[in-house]
Design a protein around this nucleic acid. Structure first.
Lengths: 333, 333
DNA sequence: ACCTATACGACATATAATGTCGTCTTTAAA
DNA sequence: TTTAAAGACGACATTATATGTCGTATAGGT
C-alpha cells in the first residue's frame, strides 16, 4: 500500500462524470472498493471536498445523497469518466481519422479511443448485440488506402516544421531509382486526403535550389533532426502558395458557380449546403438551382462531374464548355 | 497549501513526455516551482520513484542526470505532456473532424484539441510565423456544410442507442409542415459524410409500424429518454440493412471493376491504392489499368464520373454502358 | 413515525511526506 | 588529470496528512 491516496484520488476523479450526470457516495464507494481502495465513507467524503476546489468539482447538495461531478468547464475534465454519447462520438471519430491520418503514433489519441472502446464494451447490456453492431461510418466519397508512414520519420518531420529546424533525410522520388539524400528545409505540413506532405526546399550535395516542393511523407526512407534553423524564403506565405494551385490544382480563385440539379441529386443542398454563401432556388419540375461564389479547383470539377446527367452547368460559360467537352470526349472512347 | 502533494504528482505526470523524450531533475524542478510547488530535490526524486510503478514511468539511468518519461504503453499516458508531432496531429485531426462530426458537445475531445493548441501557441519560436501558418488540411473531396445538431438531442439519442432504450421525440420530416411527435425505437447510428442518422422504427400515436427508417439527427426538434427497452426486429442486422443499399445506394454487392486511367489521373493509385485487393498494370502510353473487386455503390459511380474523360470503363459491361449513357444524356442538355 | 443511509464535526493515531545531512558518482569545464 | 558543480540516494527527525471511529443531525423512503 504505497502511495495509495493519490491513486485513489485519481480513481475517483476518473469515475466522476461531467456535469449533468452525477455520482453518489454509495456509487463511488463501491467503485473504489472494486478497484482495491476500501476506505471508510468518511474518507471518501473528505476526499471529495478536498478535490472540489483544485479540480473544479461540483456537489449537488439539494438532496441526499449528494451528487458529485465535474463542472463542465473544469481544466482537467479530460480525466473525467465518459458517457455513452461521448464514447460513441469518439468511436466515430476514430473511424474517420484512421482512414485519413496516421494515428498509431499518437499514444494519447489512440489511448483515448481505447478508453472509449473499453467503456463501450463494459456497458453493453444485451449479450447478443454489441455496440460494434450499432455504429457505422459510411464514407461519403471513395476512400483510398493510405500509404504507410514510419512513425519516427513523421515525428522528426513534424517536429522540424514546428521547431523551425532543418532535417536531413533520404527521399525516394517516383522517378528515380535510388533515394536522394539531402538536407530539407521544411516550411509547412499539408494533409490532403490520405496523403500528408511537407512543403520544403532542398539542398542536395550542399547545393540549395530555391524550388518549393511538396513531398509526401511516405516517400521518405529516413529522416533525422538537425539543429540549423530553417530559411524561410522571402515572402513565402502558405495560403498564397496553396492558392497558386500547385498542389490542389486551383484553376480560378473565384467563380460564380451556377448549376441546375435534378430534384433527387440536389435536394440535400437545403440541409447540407454547398457552402456558406450558397443560394438555392427550387423551380418547376422540382429542379434546383444553386448559385455560389467558390474557387474553381480540380476537386470542384470532379464533384460536378460526379453528378453526371443529374446536374447541368449554367455558368460560368467556360466551365460549362469544359464540362461539355469532357462528356463529349468520354463518349468517343 | 492543502492537498499539495497529489496536485504536485499530477503536475509532474503532466509534465513528463512519452518515451523517446525525457525530462531531467532540473527541468522538472523548475517546471514545478513555476507552478508553485517549491520542494526539495530529494522530494522530487522520491516522487518519481513512487509514481514509477503505479503509472508506468521509465527512468533512463544510463547517464546523469537521469531522464524520466512515460512508457509508451502506459495505461494513463493521456495525462502525459504533448510533443510537437502529437500536437500537430491533433490539430489536423480537429480540422478533419470538425467538418464532419458535431464535436462541440464532447468536452474531452475539444479539451484535448485546446491543449494541443495551447501547446502549439506556447512553443512557437519566431514571432512572425505562427504554427497556424504551417498546417493546412486541403479537402480531397467537396466539403458540405454540416447541419447543426442540438447537443442535448444528440446526447439523448446516442445514449438511447447504447442503453437500448426507446426515446420520445418530435421529428420534422422534409415533407410535412409540423414535427411529428412519437416514440422512437433506435437500432443504430450511421455517420454518412456530414449527416448523422439514427436507424429506428417509430410509434406515432401509440401505433407502431415496422418500417425501418433512417432519420437524420438534425431533423429532430426534441428528444427525451424513456425507460422502455427497445424491440429489436427479428433478424435485424445492421450490415445486412446497409447492404440492402437503402442508405448508400448499393447497386451490386460485388463487381469486377476494370478501368483504364490516363497517366496523370491514375498514377496515384500506386501509392494510394483504390482498395486492398486492387491490381494495377501500366500499359503503353503510360495508361494505367485498374482491376478490383468492389461493391457498386452510388459513391463508386460518382468517383468514376468524377474523372471524366481521364478514365475509361472496360468492365463490367453494364457499368460501361451506364456510364456511357450518362455522358450521352449530359451532352443533350 | 420509524428506519436506513448520509453528512459532517471532532479526536486520536497511524502513516506518509518532507527537509536536511552525508556520501558517493557522474559530468563537464579548467 | 584535476576540480567543481550537479545529481542520486540512504538515513533520520519532524511535520503534516490521512484515516478510522464515534457521535450527532438530517434527509428520504416506507
Amino acid at each position: 500500500m504505497n502511495n495509495d491516496t493519490s491513486l485513489r484520488y485519481l480513481e475517483m476523479l476518473q469515475y466522476l462524470p461531467v456535469y449533468p450526470a452525477k455520482r453518489s457516495l454509495s456509487e463511488i464507494r463501491s467503485h473504489l472498493s472494486e478497484y482495491g481502495h476500501s476506505v471508510s465513507d468518511r474518507t471518501i467524503q473528505r476526499d471529495l471536498r478536498k478535490l472540489e476546489g483544485s479540480f473544479g468539482l461540483y456537489c449537488d447538495d439539494r438532496s441526499i445523497p449528494h451528487g458529485w461531478c465535474w463542472m463542465k468547464d473544469a481544466k482537467r475534465v479530460d480525466i473525467a469518466a465518459m458517457d455513452h454519447a461521448e464514447a460513441l462520438t469518439l468511436s466515430l471519430a476514430k473511424k474517420y481519422l484512421s482512414s485519413v491520418l496516421p494515428l498509431q503514433h499518437s499514444s494519447r489519441i489512440t489511448g483515448l479511443f481505447k478508453r472509449a472502446e473499453a467503456f463501450l464494451n463494459q456497458t453493453q447490456s444485451s449479450d447478443l448485440i454489441k455496440w460494434n453492431d450499432k455504429v457505422r461510418v459510411v464514407p461519403a466519397s471513395h476512400e483510398y488506402i493510405g500509404p504507410k508512414i514510419k512513425g519516427d520519420i513523421q515525428q522528426v518531420i513534424y517536429e522540424a516544421v514546428l521547431r523551425e529546424k532543418k532535417f536531413s533525410g533520404s527521399y525516394q522520388s517516383r522517378e528515380s531509382q535510388k533515394p536522394k539524400k539531402g538536407i530539407y528545409n521544411p516550411l509547412a505540413i499539408i494533409s490532403h486526403g490520405v496523403v500528408t506532405r511537407v512543403i520544403c526546399t532542398r539542398e542536395l550535395k550542399g547545393e540549395a535550389d530555391n524550388l518549393i516542393r511538396y513531398l509526401p511523407l511516405h516517400r521518405f526512407k529516413s529522416a533525422s533532426p538537425l539543429e540549423d534553423s530553417i530559411n524561410i524564403p522571402k515572402e513565402f506565405d502558405l495560403d498564397e502558395y496553396l492558392d497558386k494551385g500547385e498542389l490542389n490544382y486551383l484553376y480560378d480563385k473565384e467563380i460564380d458557380l451556377h448549376l441546375e440539379f435534378s430534384q433527387s441529386a440536389g435536394s440535400h443542398l437545403i440541409e447540407t449546403p454547398f457552402s456558406k454563401n450558397q443560394s438555392i432556388k427550387i423551380i418547376k419540375n422540382g429542379f434546383i438551382i444553386l448559385k455560389a461564389k467558390t474557387p474553381y479547383t480540380e476537386t470542384l470539377k470532379r464533384w460536378i462531374l460526379g453528378f453526371g446527367d443529374q446536374v447541368r452547368v449554367l455558368g460560368p460559360s467556360n466551365l460549362k464548355k469544359e464540362i461539355q467537352e469532357i462528356h463529349k470526349r468520354s463518349i468517343k472512347k
